[in-house]
Simulated scan of single mutants.
Amino acid sequence: MDNEQILDHIGALVREEHALRDREGGLTDDERVRLRTLEVQLDQCWDLLRQRRAKSEYGDNPDNAATRPPGEVEGYLS
């Protein structure tokens, strides 16, 4: 997946996330699980994009970047 494809995927995930957050009347249990899944997937996509950009900037092949597992991406400290 190249940077443009990752950004397109991020856009689709964000649209779905906003649709769920904008629902009136609250979310079902399944929708809450889906929302959490979307949040994790977005974090993974942003992380992958940052990896790719860093590799490109420093002369490495961006295709060597890989999606990190949720526990690693979600465990970052601010």
Rank of each mutant, 00 (worst) to 15 (best):
E39D: 14
V40H: 15
L38K: 09
L49N: 00
P69M: 05
A54N: 10
R36D: 02
Q41A: 03
L42R: 13
E4S: 11
D63H: 08
K55T: 00
C45R: 00
T67H: 04
P69C: 01
R68P: 02
R34Q: 10
D22R: 13
G25P: 04
E31G: 00
T37D: 10
R23T: 11
H18R: 11
D60K: 00
G11L: 02
L35W: 03
N64I: 12
W46I: 07
E74C: 06
E72A: 09
N64C: 03
L42Q: 05
R15P: 00
A54D: 11
A54Q: 04
L27Y: 15
I6M: 11
G59W: 08
P70M: 07
P62E: 09
E4L: 13
D30H: 09
P62W: 01
R21I: 10
E39A: 04
K55P: 00
D30W: 11
D60R: 03
A54M: 15
G11Y: 03
V14H: 11
E72I: 12
R68K: 14
R53K: 12
N3T: 13
G71D: 07
H18A: 04
I10L: 04
S78G: 04
A54H: 14
D43R: 14
T37P: 01
R68D: 02
D43C: 12
T67F: 04
T67L: 02
R34S: 11
R50K: 00
L77V: 15
E72F: 07
Y76P: 01
L35E: 00
A19H: 12
Q41G: 00
K55L: 07
T37L: 06
A19G: 09
D8A: 07
L20R: 08
R34F: 09
Q44V: 09
L77W: 14
R21Y: 07
E4N: 07
L27D: 09
E17M: 12
E74I: 07
P70K: 10
A12V: 05
N61Y: 04
D22P: 03
E74F: 05
C45Y: 14
N64T: 12
I6E: 03
T28L: 08
G75Y: 07
N64L: 15
L48V: 12
W46S: 02
H9E: 10
Q41N: 06
K55G: 01
H9F: 06
S78W: 09
H9R: 08
L49T: 02
L27C: 04
P62S: 08
I6D: 03
Q44M: 04
S56D: 13
E31N: 02
E57T: 15
Y76N: 11
E39Q: 06
R50Y: 06
R15G: 15
P69Q: 07
E39H: 03
L20M: 15
E72G: 03
E17K: 15
Q41R: 12
E24F: 12
G25S: 13
Y58V: 14
E17R: 15
G25A: 11
D22I: 08
R32H: 06
V14M: 10
D2H: 02
R15I: 13
C45S: 02
D30E: 13
G25T: 05
A12Y: 05
M1K: 03
G11N: 05
P70Y: 03
L13Y: 12
I6S: 01
A65R: 07
A65Y: 01
L35V: 00
L49P: 00
V14R: 13
R36W: 04
